[in-house]
Simulated scan of single mutants.
Amino acid sequence: MEEDGDVGEEYLFKIVLIGDSAVGKSNLLSRFARNEFDTNSKATIGVEFQTQVVEIEGKEVKAQIWDTAGQERFRAVTSAYYRGAVGALVVYDISRRSTFDGIKRWLEELATQNDGTVATMLVGNKCDLENIREVSVEEGKNLAEAEGLFFMETSALDTTNVQIAFETVIREIYDNISRKVLSSDSHKAELSANRVSLVNGAGSKQHQFNFSCCS
């Protein structure tokens, strides 16, 4: 469905937001998609998603970003929720250590539910709460390096790094699919995002991002 004759391929990437309840996943999404923040945000029930358009190298890229409840009682949605995801933001609250301690479990679930590699960023949200911080920037960075993830601290409240966090994941997906197209004998990209390589250039190590509130 091309409304403009100059529009070529359209890219649609599914990205999931995961992490414990009340770490700010829904507000991160609303800040990115609508530049809104709800101080009275209620827990997400079931699944919600927003589609955001980003232009990369003159091409229109649509990111379909899914948000679901972090509470255990809603875990039954996970299989369908993760299916086809090519990107993930794994979110914790820097002022609640328990949400950081749960990150490895979320990463394990992501790996279990998706049989391919997913462009993944570790996000330490609520970095505006510096005065009650329980997780240091260094701890977040170290975990990201150990797991081979991108890392960024954000604040959905004051907008710190929200845009760049989402756009970094979207660009990583796009870059890897572009590389796959260039190296593929087929004429069409395999956009079924369980086959996206995360190798950057000739190396096998992902680029590391370390954006804290203070940087």
Rank of each mutant, 00 (worst) to 15 (best):
E108Y: 01
T51V: 14
L182E: 15
Q52Y: 02
A22K: 10
S41N: 05
E153I: 04
E145V: 08
R73V: 05
D101G: 00
D67W: 01
R96H: 03
L122W: 06
R195S: 13
F151M: 06
K25Y: 04
R179S: 13
V162G: 02
S136Q: 06
R83H: 14
R34N: 10
M1D: 12
S212L: 03
K180A: 15
R31S: 11
Y11I: 10
Q113S: 13
E57D: 15
V53K: 13
T112H: 12
I132Y: 00
Y11A: 02
E153C: 03
S136C: 04
V118Q: 08
A80Q: 14
G201W: 00
M121P: 00
V137H: 13
V162P: 10
I103G: 00
S155I: 01
N35W: 04
E130Y: 06
R195C: 09
Y82T: 07
M121L: 09
F211H: 13
S183H: 11
E153S: 04
F37Q: 02
E57H: 12
G102A: 15
K126A: 05
T44P: 12
V47I: 15
D93H: 02
N125D: 03
A111W: 02
R83Q: 14
D115A: 14
D20E: 13
V47M: 06
N125K: 04
G46S: 05
A165L: 01
C127D: 03
L110G: 04
D185Q: 14
D101K: 11
V47A: 02
S183Y: 01
N200D: 08
S30E: 14
D115C: 11
E55L: 10
N142P: 00
E57F: 05
A189S: 13
E145A: 15
N194K: 13
Y11P: 00
D20T: 05
K141H: 07
I56F: 07
T160Q: 06
T154P: 08
Q64P: 03
E145Y: 00
A146E: 14
T168D: 01
R75N: 12
A88S: 13
G124T: 04
S21H: 00
N27H: 12
T160W: 01
D6P: 04
L29S: 10
G116M: 09
S183K: 14
L89H: 05
R171H: 07
V196F: 10
R105D: 07
K180R: 12
W66M: 08
S197P: 08
Y82V: 05
Q50N: 09
G87M: 04
T154E: 03
G84F: 08
N131L: 09
D20L: 07
S155P: 15
R31C: 09
G116R: 11
S95Y: 05
A165Q: 03
V181R: 14
K62D: 00
L107T: 03
V135R: 10
S26P: 11
Y92Q: 01
K25R: 05
S204R: 14
Q52S: 10
R195M: 09
L29Q: 11
N200A: 10
N176V: 04
E3W: 00
Y92H: 10
A146T: 09
